[in-house]
Design a protein around this nucleic acid. Sequence first.
DNA 1: GGATTAGTTGCATAACTGTTCAAATATTAA
DNA 2: TTAATATTTGAACAGTTATGCAACTAATCC
Lengths: 133, 133
Amino acid sequence: MNSYATNPMSKTTTIVREGESCEVTCINPSKVRSLARSLPRTSAVERISSTFQTMSDPSRLKILYCVSQGDVCVCDLSAVLGMNVSAVSHQLRLLRTLNLVKPRRDGRIVYYSLSDEHVGELMRMGLEHELES
Amino acid sequence: MNSYATNPMSKTTTIVREGESCEVTCINPSKVRSLARSLPRTSAVERISSTFQTMSDPSRLKILYCVSQGDVCVCDLSAVLGMNVSAVSHQLRLLRTLNLVKPRRDGRIVYYSLSDEHVGELMRMGLEHELES
DNA sequence: GGATTAGTTGCATAACTGTTCAAATATTAA
DNA sequence: TTAATATTTGAACAGTTATGCAACTAATCC
């Protein structure tokens, strides 16, 4: 095979990554090829992970919880969460940009509500598991 | 009421936040009290959000996907993902610390597999939604 | 217009994070 | 023991991010 002091376990095989073929060294070629075929491409994984990232901050997750229960204004969110009004507004802007919440103005007051049901589902699932463990 | 030029919408009420009672100014006292009652406490929210944070990185999410399909060694993960072996190992250590993956040594080779079914569920849900949209 | 309230935004900053490089450890076989 | 391989680890770095402050806009009522 070769003249090294130990037998390397590694072999080489060809896989397709992000649409382009490339040769890689690995231990289990068939497993690697199988994974390379089924792994969603980076663009899709990035979209999913960014959804999770939105829910990865405690303050933001609390905000999402509140607005999932119905319309809540900035001032009330600030009161419930014990957060600076400015901090709440910054987070709401982020959520607005991602189309996860939608604002409704009533005079000086702006009410926010959850507009993405998928995020609501993931949040409920996370909550359920946490409370039962 | 008062002698200001405009009528403020804000009122004050008392809620319980993280176990301690505090007076807050808000627009809708009853809504605020209701949210304050149902909002899980910070320690629980932090645990949930840290689960989401784990899945908020594309590389880590790919690793989790791979090890959810069966045992995979570091070298093969590196090959499939096109990542530095060291980077993969760093991420695996993090996942190990969180008890999300478990290692199994076979000689020089260490195989990792998913050990937290809840994370697997959340990942599948995220994937399903992404692929259908 | 003028004064007050509700909310937004830009900037600065401190904290965190993912990756790489280099060095170390663990295992195997000659 | 020696050499090679598979993985781990520590340190450093670049990039990101959540928050607070101050200044701003938007809306209301006199």
